[in-house]
Design a protein around this nucleic acid. Sequence first.
RNA 1: GUGAGUGUAGCUCAAGGGUAGAGUAUCGGUCUGUGGAACCGAAUGUUGGGGGUUCAAAUCCCCUCACUCACCCCA
Length: 417
Amino acid sequence: MNRINAPRGTRDIVYPEITDWQMLEERIREFYSRFLYREIRTPIFEHSELFHRGIGDTTEVVQKEMYTFEDKAGRSLTLRPENTASVVRAAIENNLLDTAFPLRFFYIGPMFRYDKPQKGRFRQFHQFGIEVFREESPELDAEVVYAAHAFLEELGLHDISLEINSVGCDECRPAYLTVLRQEAQARQEELCPDCRRKVDTNPLRIFDCKQPGCRSVAVAFPTIANHLCPGCSDHFTGVQAGLDAYQVPYTVNERMVRGLDYYTRTAFEITSSRLGAQNAILGGGRYNRLIHDLGGPDIPGIGFAAGMERLLLHLEMPPAEKPALCFLACQSAEYRLHVMKLARMLWQAGYHAFVDYSHANLKKQFRRSDRMAADFTLVLGEEEVSSGQLTIKDMARQEQVRIPQQELLEWMNQRKK
RNA sequence: GUGAGUGUAGCUCAAGGGUAGAGUAUCGGUCUGUGGAACCGAAUGUUGGGGGUUCAAAUCCCCUCACUCACCCCA
């Protein structure tokens, strides 16, 4: 029979890598609960319309990268490519927006995008993120950015840099885009074919182009900084003051663009220099229209999402502390039932124990114990059973003792300290 | 979606038209109450898949699939 492999761009996470994931998830839960973020779990698929309306029809993600399918009743469903729209939908649907309690959510889970896989990019990948609704002060933006940056720092991530920008709002961005489009049109000849197309559709993206020609042209283009309305301008100033208060190191990048349409005002991104081409490890920003656009009240929101694969790619997790492991061997099969009684004692007391049910001789059982990196090997044989004792060998110290069987737990407890 | 590189034993890799190999891991033995070392031995492959050229293909040609990296896009 031919084998079936995991679909392209997906992968299995198995031991020992899985322990890194478990530790990371634990750290996320602990860290973000300090800020009163509460976990939320939303469905892995949603009505396709949620993402069309939320993320924006013209975005790359929606146009080319969604896993969309029809269910048996003919509904158009889509595997979530990101989670912000879902969290907003869930908050509205569950009437969570009426409470006086802070509206703060965090999530951890798989996302799906039909991309061509490469280093740090998968079709099923995992993100964690946070969302805050209803608070509009710039200082809150600063706290969210701090919560993003400080977490990575606490994880011991090096070689990361934080960039922020303001992308304006519905008041000032259209006017700026007009100016930018004019400028780009004037110098169209000097742009690559790709960018020439962007002049009409999304001129901001020209700033992203890596072609040296486009880059040198785009440097001269006007940035949004001078076109922000007073409201956005004050807000951005406030964000920066807040970041200084929280002592977050950042640089302002007036040319930073984000891929999702819903961002207003604050946008930020954390990249790593150790990651290859896919160097964005975290991205987010404010979205003051999204909740309203998805049928909710007219309240603002802000959040970010981080790529967990990319995080783990250059994160050195400390080796997990594993409790002592006892390997239970016996001289021959006739003592097996005795061994099982000892195993039961250990398990009930919370110890890790492995019973060798094979009929191998002791030498082989010891070898197996060694390969499994057991801390202790317990042996039961004729001598032990007839005297109610058992032999324990400390594998690392190469010392062994014989003790009464009923003293096993006592011995382990002392040994553990 | 575009491009480049790579697919041979569980893993890392040889063999570049003439019998598919090594290291490592696995299993057995030297060694039936004691692991890591050493020595001896065994097992394991539709050479990613399909087609073509040839007396003969892992090797040359075509197609396809997968992986890797880059473009693109983004977490």
